[in-house]
């Protein structure tokens, strides 16, 4: 190495050394994040597992055309948008919880509340499913309670009840995220200038007026960022939750896009069609994020990402 160092000069060598060090990382990132993107090409072919790239048949736009004739798509989109819509509907909730939490003066109690309400964020959907099974399954606590109260029980529990699927999944999602998201807003409250409160109090504002005129407006920027990110994720409900809670009784209501991609892909082996759906989903997501970013720039003067 001495020779290279001498040839190109020590300073230059030092510069390029960093580049050489970062190179393995770049190859890694390329291999694990960029190479899978080439798989999108299979949207134009009929991919069969085990076949190599040059062995697969050209399919043209067949898989794209199928999107419009696939009778499942309207149902899948409906479920996807319903679940995203409900999530958007509850997006101010963490803000309200943060206001209430901020009003708890006892530090120990406040900490206790934060610890308990953020716990659901840190357990997997597998465990959530296990908990829900215990509470809302066929032999779960809810059915036992209904029995005691002499109310007709749900034969397969809430988990197997088609009519409550949307609300149940919405509530589970909320349960898992509410406490955690509230912490973000707590951070926003801490950032509000204390003098504003003092000045308002001098003017005779009561607690509700302080919240209405100072705390809430102070949280709006955070709210907008999170809202825009949520909007750009309307097609991404996530896979874990819907996969875990899927059963044939509620399939009609619970199958969202992320589930469908798995279903047509790995479950029934229509790889290319699954790739087409997921590719379009990703691209639409990027476009919405881009638009949301422009909205954010206009509204707040700063970009989102």
């Amino acid at each position: 190495m001495e020779t290279i160092k001498e040839k190109i000069g020590y300073k230059r060598w030092k510069k390029w050394k960093y580049f050489l060090l970062v190179l393995p990382f770049l190859i890694f990132v390329f291999a694990f994040s960029y190479v899978p993107l080439f798989g999108w090409a299979y949207a134009f072919f009929d991919y069969r597992p085990g076949k190599l790239f040059w062995d697969v048949d050209w399919a043209g736009l067949k898989h794209f055309q199928r999107l419009f004739t696939d009778s499942s798509i309207p149902r899948i989109l409906r479920n996807t948008l319903v679940m995203s819509g409900l999530t958007l509907l509850s997006s101010p909730f963490p803000m309200f919880l943060a206001i209430l939490l901020n009003d708890v003066k006892n530090v120990k109690i406040k900490k206790f509340i934060q610890t308990t309400t953020t716990l659901p964020h840190f357990i997997s959907w597998v465990v959530v499913f296990g908990l829900a099974h215990g509470l809302f399954g066929a032999t779960g606590l809810l059915n036992q309670l209904l029995k005691v109260l002499d109310i007709p029980t749900l034969e397969f529990g809430l988990i197997g009840d088609k009519n409550s699927t949307w609300v149940l999944q919405w509530m589970l999602g909320l349960w898992k995220t509410l406490g955690w998201d509230a912490i973000l807003y707590m951070a926003a409250i801490v950032g509000i200038d204390g003098e504003l409160y003092d000045a308002a109090k001098v003017d005779g504002a009561n607690k509700l007026q302080l919240i209405r005129h100072i705390t809430l407006p102070g949280m709006v920027p955070t709210f907008l960022v999170l809202l825009l990110l949520k909007v750009s994720n309307v097609l991404n409900n996530g896979f874990d939750q819907y996969f875990m809670f899927w059963n044939s009784l509620v399939a009609d209501k619970i199958e969202v896009l992320d589930y469908y991609i798995y279903n047509v892909g790995l479950k029934t082996g229509q790889y290319s069609y699954s790739i087409t759906v997921s590719m379009l989903k990703s691209l639409i997501g990027i476009v919405i994020l881009f638009l949301a970013n422009r909205v954010s720039k206009k509204l707040r003067g700063t970009s989102l990402v």
């Binding site: 694990f32 994040s33 960029y34 190479v35 899978p36 993107l37 080439f38 798989g39 999108w40 299979y42 991919y47 597992p49 896979f239 991609i261 798995y262 892909g265 790995l266 790889y271 699954s274 790739i275 997921s278 590719m279 989903k281 990703s282 997501g285």
Partner: peptide, 11 residues
Amino acid sequence: LDAGLIPWYIV
């Protein structure tokens, strides 16, 4: 960038 389930699986 999210390539999706199947491309990830194949790779």
